[in-house]
Simulated scan of single mutants.
Amino acid sequence: MPRVENVVEGVAETRAGLPRGFSQELDHVSNQRPEDDSHLAEKIRGAGNDGDSTRASDTRSPQATPPPKAIPRKPGRLPAGEWPELTSDGPPSFGNWLKAAREGRGLSQDKLAIRIGRPGSGSYIGQMERTGNVTDAMAQRLFDALDAPEDVRAAVLQRYQRAPVRHLRVLDFPDPTPHRTPNSWFREARVKQELSQAELASRAGVSKSGYAMRERAAKFDNPRGESAIGLEYARKLLRGLEAPEHVTVAVTDKFFPGAVSEK
Rank of each mutant, 00 (worst) to 15 (best):
Asp175Tyr: 06
Gly126Ala: 02
Ala201Glu: 03
Glu232Cys: 02
Ala259Thr: 07
Asp136Lys: 02
Leu195Phe: 08
Ile116Ala: 10
Ala56Asp: 15
Gln193Cys: 14
Ser184Met: 03
Val206Pro: 05
Glu245Met: 07
Ala204Lys: 07
Ala16Met: 06
Ile44Ala: 12
Arg60Trp: 03
Pro119Gly: 09
Trp185Ala: 06
Asp89Tyr: 06
Ser123Tyr: 10
Pro182Gln: 01
Asn31Arg: 15
Ile116Asp: 09
Ser184Thr: 09
Glu35Met: 08
His39Thr: 07
Thr87Ser: 14
Ala250Asn: 10
Val4Ser: 04
Pro257Cys: 10
Ile125Asn: 07
Asp136Ala: 04
Ala228Phe: 11
Ser227Thr: 05
Ala155Trp: 11
Thr54Arg: 12
Ala113Asp: 00
Asp52Phe: 14
Asp50Pro: 03
Gln161Val: 11
Thr135Leu: 02
Gly21Lys: 10
Ala101Ser: 04
Gln197Met: 10
Arg162Ala: 02
His39Ile: 01
Gly117Leu: 01
Val206Leu: 12
Ser30Asn: 03
Ile229Gly: 03
His39Gln: 10
Ser227Gly: 15
His167Ala: 15
Ala243Ile: 02
Tyr233Ser: 06
Ala212Gly: 11
Asp221Val: 12
Ile125Gln: 06
Glu188Leu: 13
Gln197Ser: 10
Pro84Arg: 00
Asp37Val: 07
Asp147His: 13
Ala189Phe: 09
Ala198Trp: 04
Gln193Met: 14
Pro223Lys: 01
Gly117Lys: 03
